[in-house]
């Protein structure tokens, strides 16, 4: 290679880097910028009517776990916050699990249809996205509220005598989130199952595997990337869910998203809100790292 050619290659490599500059700028400003502002706010003192006062304080962070008792001036555990964290993690895990249990057979069903029918079924899966999340959530509310469709139907059929008090409970939030996030589980699962070579089923069956073994030893390990993708797509937004717990939890059964909103709104405690936002980010990151490690854990697959 001549020096001139070498110089040209170097030049084009430099140009390639220049081409990605807009993306780098946007990412820096759009992703890191707000995060840095939140980090900054979490270490400032709260103003009396919201906003922040420009003096350093760790009050925002410490009040996640402890509240100051205004009478005795001593610190006590912030039970309410811990209960909300626990509810958020528990409901998100349950949502991920139920969407997988329901979503896997659904995705399998769609992936094993003839190509034309497959497009139709996938189209059905995307229909809920046509309606605003808030409206869909209110629709769930309409179904499960005390005088709602579900209770009326069950009572008419004589299955229950008293209406079920589902609305404004954790169960209501769970039902709502499972409904809202189910497509996010089905789609990546479908993509993974669609790539699965169905001839492997015959090969396993021929090699003395039972149906259960085929599922556990062949299908699940091979479609694992789809399971990981689906679980992340469901777990992460579940953990930060705001609309669903607000509408179906009735403001009493809060999740982290609602708690954060409360601090920036009525609570007028911006540093705590900022610290809670970062805590949510931390929980998500730790959960994802742990999950991906466990999922890829036992054996390193290339």
């Amino acid at each position: 290679m001549s020096p001139a050619e070498e110089a040209q290659i170097k030049q084009s490599a430099r140009n390639g880097w220049l081409l990605s500059l807009p993306a780098i700028v946007v990412l820096t400003i759009a992703a890191s910028g707000p995060l840095l502002i939140i980090l900054l706010y979490s270490f400032l003192e709260g103003g009396t009517h919201g906003n922040v006062v420009w003096s350093f304080s760790t009050e925002g962070w410490s009040s996640i776990l402890w509240t100051k008792d205004i009478f005795t001036d001593s610190y006590v555990w912030a039970d309410a916050h811990l209960a909300i964290f626990w509810r958020s993690v528990k409901l998100s895990l349950m949502t991920t699990l139920i969407t997988f249990v329901v979503g896997f057979p659904t995705a399998w069903f769609i992936a094993t249809r003839p190509p034309k029918a497959r497009a139709f079924w996938l189209f059905l899966i995307t229909i809920p996205f046509w309606t605003n999340l808030l409206i869909r959530t209110y629709a769930i509310n309409e179904v499960i509220r005390v005088e709602g469709v579900l209770n009326l139907a069950l009572m008419q059929l004589g299955i229950i005598a008293e209406p079920l008090r589902l609305i404004y409970t954790d169960t209501a939030i769970f039902i709502g989130m499972a409904y809202v996030y189910l497509p996010l589980m089905v789609l990546p699962l479908f993509a993974a199952i669609d790539r699965f070579d169905m001839r492997l089923l015959e090969a396993s069956y021929d090699l003395y595997a039972s149906r259960w073994h085929i599922l556990r030893k062949v299908i699940l390990p091979i479609v694992k990337p789809g399971i990981i993708a689906g679980s992340i797509l469901v777990f992460v937004p579940s953990l930060g869910a705001y609309v669903t717990p607000r509408v179906l939890g009735g403001g009493k059964q809060m999740m982290i998203g609602n708690l954060i909103e409360l601090q920036f709104g009525q609570g007028k405690n911006w540093p705590l809100g900022a610290a809670l936002s970062l805590t949510l980010l931390l929980i998500v990151t730790v959960a994802l790292l742990y999950y991906v490690r466990v999922a890829n854990g036992e054996k390193k697959h290339g």
């Binding site: 070579d197 090969a203 069956y205 021929d206 090699l207 003395y208 062949v218 091979i222």
Partner: peptide
């Protein structure tokens, strides 16, 4: 008798080896 209970094994045209 189902395939997993027959002492008969198959070499498939596509091989159908387990990729994982």
């Amino acid at each position: 008798l189902p395939p997993n209970r027959r002492p008969v094994n198959t070499v498939f045209q596509s091989y159908a080896l387990f990729p994982h």
